[in-house]
Write a protein that binds this DNA or RNA. Structure first.
Ligand SMILES: [Mn+2]
Ligand SMILES: [Mn+2]
Ligand SMILES: [Zn+2]
Ligand SMILES: [Zn+2]
Lengths: 137, 137
DNA sequence: GAATCACATGCAACAGTATTGCAAAGTTAT
DNA sequence: ATAACTTTGCAATACTGTTGCATGTGATTC
């Protein structure tokens, strides 16, 4: 049926199941990062823990990445096809303080940062807050 | 008694109380950002909610700022004397993945970022993760 | 095809952090 | 001293994330 989606899942070594197809679909059609709760809301009767574990699988297999935008809930977004979740794939994220939506700014890679002596860079989470295009007065 | 501390509090229009002096002292002597729980641990019998409200007051009065470093708990650190918690005072933060300590990199102001059309910069939270000077193998 | 196995799901319970209502205690003003 | 206001302590709750365990489902082996 949803052969497109199954292909995406299998590309990342994820066995396609009904649940996984559904969660993938939600992440794909919303073009922003979504929290566990927000994903749950888009279904009628789907178990939170199942979605949770689905997201965990997706993240382990590098199909999605997560952002902690400071809103209280971690949000998840699809990676690009060629993403390996390495340092080169890190990008800015934007949290709109009006509508609460979180956007991946995938074309804005985060820059190298010169740290003080003794600090070693491994990873980064750069979140910018403000108003998004939909919320301009 | 702790006239030094009282002065700091009064400078920011915070009425000095015993609790507030104690919480200030903990934040001052630890040179890093601390979570509510970490602060609580440094006392014998102090109410979490009281510390919580103390931190809220401190933050409202611009005596401290908070960092969401993705560790699960928000952390708090003293501002510099001349800090007004405006854009110019924003700085990078560093979370050590080994010891879990969070450092203010106060001499590293976060740069202006060119956002795509329609996005409006209001605030930012830039967290770098890695190993800190104390944890180098 | 039946037995076996690995994995996925559903349900319920729990953990960690943050937050609030309310009454008691303390402080300041009249 | 009384009243008004603020701070604190205690208990309860909300919210997000996480896990144990039983059940279901589909693939594999015999
Ligand atoms: Mn992203
Ligand atoms: Mn800081
Ligand atoms: Zn918005
Ligand atoms: Zn460290």
């Amino acid at each position: 049926m949803s052969n497109e989606i199954d292909k995406k899942l299998e590309q990342k070594n994820i066995k396609p199941t009904a649940m996984r197809e559904l969660v993938y679909e939600v992440l794909d059609k919303n073009k922003k990062a979504l929290s566990l709760y927000e994903i749950e809301q888009q279904f009628e009767n789907v178990e939170r823990s199942t979605i949770f574990r689905t997201l965990k699988t997706f993240q382990d297999k590098l199909l999605i990445h997560s952002v902690d935008d400071g809103s209280g809930a971690v949000k998840y977004a699809l990676c690009d096809d060629d993403c390996t979740c390495s340092l080169d794939d890190l990008h800015y994220h934007f949290l709109c303080t009006k509508c609460g939506q979180t956007h991946c700014l995938k074309n804005m890679p985060i820059p190298k940062v010169d740290l003080p002596e003794g600090f070693n860079f491994e990873n980064a989470n750069f979140v910018i807050k403000g108003t998004c295009p939909n919320c301009q007065g």
